[in-house]
Design a protein around this nucleic acid. Sequence first.
DNA 1: ACCTGAACACCGTTCAAGT
DNA 2: ACCTGAACACCGTTCAAGT
Lengths: 194, 194
Amino acid sequence: MAAPREPLTRDRIIDTALHIVDGQGLSRLTMRRLGDALEVEAMAIYHHLPRGKEELLDGLIAHVAALPAAPVRPDDERSAAGDWRSQLREWGAAYRARLLDHAGVLPLLVTRRNPAALAATTASLRDVLRRAGFLDAAAAAGAHTLLGYVIGHTALEARAQAARRADDPDEDIDWDLRFGTGLNVVLAGLLTLP
Amino acid sequence: MAAPREPLTRDRIIDTALHIVDGQGLSRLTMRRLGDALEVEAMAIYHHLPRGKEELLDGLIAHVAALPAAPVRPDDERSAAGDWRSQLREWGAAYRARLLDHAGVLPLLVTRRNPAALAATTASLRDVLRRAGFLDAAAAAGAHTLLGYVIGHTALEARAQAARRADDPDEDIDWDLRFGTGLNVVLAGLLTLP
DNA sequence: ACCTGAACACCGTTCAAGT
DNA sequence: ACCTGAACACCGTTCAAGT
């Protein structure tokens, strides 16, 4: 008797696709290979993702990029004024780690596809800054500055790690330190906003 | 008599490819279409770019991303101390404009391909900061912070512009202003570096 | 040296058909 | 409702052949 196959699901499809991207790279993600990994014909995927590969890539972005900055408790009394800096430092470290874990998805984040995928994260950053006392306009601009830095700097890091090989060890950068330094620069600069 | 065809050249190939990407998007850049645009069979391209499409994309990145921050004159006496800020503001505006002009190449900048393409730009930024009086370590970190911000924020902008349509005018962001605000945040924060 | 033609092993996707 | 098989219009690339 055949093993009772797990039913095909949108979530399971996207999880499996992410696994392929993480393990073999974005260019190896094909509908046929994804079908193989799901033990199904490639065409079955279209039943759950009618827009095909476009929808699959949109799903990958949404899965990786939606990491909010604010903790679940929206009005934590214990968070002293000024604590927003360490909260954003923690968020930045977590977001960077997530992007590096799924570095194959990074190029998709810079495409015009699924532009809404970062809306929740941006809104969350804006809220943190607003609660810290920033005016609306400053909070909105600060959120974009922060997110832009984190995504861009992490992209530079991912690129540089590809160049690091035995015959080119002259550039020996501590990326943990460098990311933290830059994040502190941005956080310090936010204080100059009106 | 047939028109004397312009000889095929590495530069002409990459220029034509960039034209296709700018006009039709990265996904429409195929070796066959590129051959058509060059009035040549696609296979002729391989004679000038032996590594094929990989080398073509590497060339696109190098062509778009290598915009130095320092002017040609490396030791301009007239540049007063403190003028480095406006110099970096000008560079940032120019770099952003270039990335937006070739937004289709942006995803390639976040891939692991051609990791050396940003080396010249990074070195140039480091030099500007060093001449402004920053210590070596601070100049290196500051260069990455700046470049990361500019690339990341511009990527956010390119994404957002894809979402802007008639039925979604609630988010009406002045991106020129927003980019400048964030750049000023980063520049102000650099002053906190040792 | 430079380009072509034909061929190979792949793609994403449609569509009628099965259960 | 959910999946399959065959087919279509494409890809990137190799390789022998032309000039």
